[in-house]
């Protein structure tokens, strides 16, 4: 069943075009990633999906209704974690969950949520005294308290330390296990690679790619990469003739070779045959990160 259907979405703020013809669908139970550089139109897209903004043109259907229409009842069925969010400083964790639970006709049990998200010990802690990771956990719990069928998580882990980020990923996997559809806005490729069933890359308000993380990587960049250093100046011609090799990049003493097939064997044979002494030889598979950089032409922050 299709949970989100967006067709030809356009949105501009004054002169600036934020979203320029974005189309995609999200199926039930999926974790769908929305990736792209800052200002690419990610947040605007998901805000149109959640009904916080109305599109200039194009159609948006969420769970069969138009999110911008008043009285669609959609807000009861969609949970949202905003990119920037605050609660009153002195509101306690337990009070916040009770308050938000009171906004919904059939909320989940706030106590059970507190336990499940490891917030039970923080029940009486005021919002201002929470750490970044704790706030994020609270906001995830708040986005779930209405018992939604779809949650939108906008830049869930931005500003968290690596530990807190990994903990948060586990939480997202638990949301998925509940059968809730998740839209995840991110600019951490590692996060998208681990969590998302499919990712959509947006740049300059347009969709530049939409595939599974593995599919996107395979389609965009050669499947293998070898990196090493040489003490003597290296002649790229040595390797670029091999049919396994797609590209050779020499930067000072560092050499990067990409390609397919039995790349490592082909390359090391040539190097051994020519008595080239190499150091720090590493072979790996390009990640979604490399695919993303190739697609958007910008460095990830």
């Amino acid at each position: 069943m299709t949970v989100i259907e967006v067709r030809n979405l356009h949105k501009r703020y004054g002169e600036r075009v934020a979203v320029d013809g974005v189309s995609f669908t999200v199926e039930r139970g999926e974790v769908f990633g929305v990736l792209g550089p800052n200002g690419a139109g990610k947040t605007t897209t998901v805000e149109c999906v959640s009904g916080l903004r109305s599109p200039d043109s194009g159609t948006v259907r969420v769970l069969g209704s138009d999110p911008a229409a008043v009285g669609s009842g959609l807000r009861q069925r969609v949970g949202m974690q905003l990119q920037e969010s605050h609660l009153p400083d002195r509101l306690r964790v337990g009070e916040a969950l009770d308050l938000y639970a009171s906004c919904y006709p059939a909320p989940l049990d706030p106590r059970a949520l507190l336990d499940e998200w490891g917030l039970a010990d923080l029940r009486d802690r005021p919002f201002a005294k929470l750490s970044g990771g704790q706030k994020q956990r609270l906001f995830i719990a708040l986005s779930l308290v209405g018992g939604p069928e779809l949650v939108v998580l906008d830049e869930l882990t931005t500003g968290l330390d690596p530990h807190a980020r990994r903990d948060t990923w586990d939480l997202v996997e638990r949301i998925k296990e509940r059968g809730v559809t998740v839209v995840l806005v991110s600019h951490f490729m590692e996060e998208a690679e681990r969590l998302c069933d499919r990712v959509m890359v947006i740049d300059g308000g347009r969709v530049v790619a939409l595939d599974t993380p593995a599919g996107l990587t395979a389609r965009t960049v050669p499947p293998q990469r070898i990196r090493f250093r040489t003490s003597d100046p290296f002649d790229a011609e040595l390797l670029s003739g091999l049919h396994e090799v797609a590209s050779v990049t020499v930067t000072g003493s560092r050499v990067e070779v990409t390609g397919a097939g039995d790349l490592l064997h082909a390359v090391t044979s040539v190097l051994a045959g020519r008595h080239v002494v190499v150091a720090d030889l590493r072979a790996d598979r390009p990640t979604l990160d490399d695919a993303y950089v190739a697609l958007t032409g910008t460095r990830t922050p």
């Binding site: 959640s50 920037e84 906004c103 209405g146």
Partner: peptide, 17 residues
């Protein structure tokens, strides 16, 4: 103040009119 800090924005995602 709630509006300035985005507290109302968070409220806007709930069904509360």
């Amino acid at each position: 103040g709630y509006r300035e800090k985005g507290i109302l924005r968070r409220m806007a995602t709930t069904p509360i009119p």
